[in-house]
Simulated assay, not measured.
Amino acid sequence: MNNDKKLAIVLFTGIGILLIYIAISTYITNQKWDDPKLNKSYTIGLIEDFERGAKSPPVYKYYFHVDGLKYSNDHLIVSQLRLLGEEKLKKIVGKRFYVKFIAEDPSYSKLLMGYPVPDSIKEAPVRGWKKLPR
């Protein structure tokens, strides 16, 4: 077998393993969000940065606190928000939005871009709210 065939086999095997890993990771994450036995809570997240990828969707980097610990995550901008210009997207940095997280493992979180935190709410309870405040 020549070197080109060996390289192709290694390359396709590596890509296949990567795709399987991504599929399994996505499945596990979706299972956690859909599991009714896991408690979901809400807190306040702050968008701290905006990044536009060359070949990937732009993202907001956000963080939040639960039980005194800081958690961070990325929010892919794939909605109509993506159609805004970069300057308008950057204006959202520093704004507060509600974050939904799994109480048993807050590293699983979702930034709720449709739910900005009103100025009347200064801080969240240490372990968050069981229901989204109104």
Rank of each mutant, 00 (worst) to 15 (best):
P36G: 03
N39D: 10
G114A: 14
K55P: 01
V126C: 03
L69I: 11
S109P: 05
K32Q: 02
S25A: 09
T29Y: 00
N39F: 01
L83K: 15
S79R: 11
P57Y: 14
S120I: 13
K88Q: 15
I102A: 00
V99C: 08
I15N: 04
Y98E: 04
K95T: 11
L38V: 00
K122R: 14
I15M: 07
D34A: 06
A23F: 10
R82P: 02
L81C: 02
P36W: 04
G16E: 06
N2K: 05
L76N: 14
K90V: 09
V78M: 11
R134L: 12
I92Y: 05
H65P: 00
L132Q: 08
L89I: 08
K6F: 08
P106W: 03
H75P: 02
K6G: 01
T29L: 00
P118E: 09
T13P: 03
W33Q: 00
G16M: 05
I44E: 04
Y63H: 15
L19N: 14
Y62T: 11
Y62V: 12
Y63D: 10
K37A: 08
L69E: 14
Y71Q: 07
E51G: 05
N30Q: 11
M1V: 06
K40R: 15
V59E: 06
E123L: 13
L89R: 12
I47K: 12
L112E: 01
V117Q: 09
G45N: 08
L84K: 15
L111T: 04
W33A: 00
N3C: 01
V59S: 12
P133A: 10
R134M: 12
G53H: 14
Y63F: 09
D34N: 13
S41C: 08
D49V: 04
L19M: 13
L81I: 12
Y42K: 03
L112I: 05
S25L: 00
D74T: 13
S56P: 04
L112V: 04
Y62H: 08
G128W: 11
L83Y: 13
K5A: 07
K122C: 04
L69Y: 14
I17S: 10
F97M: 07
S107K: 15
K95L: 11
P106D: 05
I9K: 12
L46K: 15
I44V: 13
I47E: 02
G14Q: 04
I17F: 13
D4E: 13
D67S: 13
K55M: 11
Q31E: 00
P116H: 09
K88P: 09
T43D: 04
N2P: 06
R52C: 05
H65W: 09
G16P: 07
K90Q: 15
K32T: 00
F101C: 05
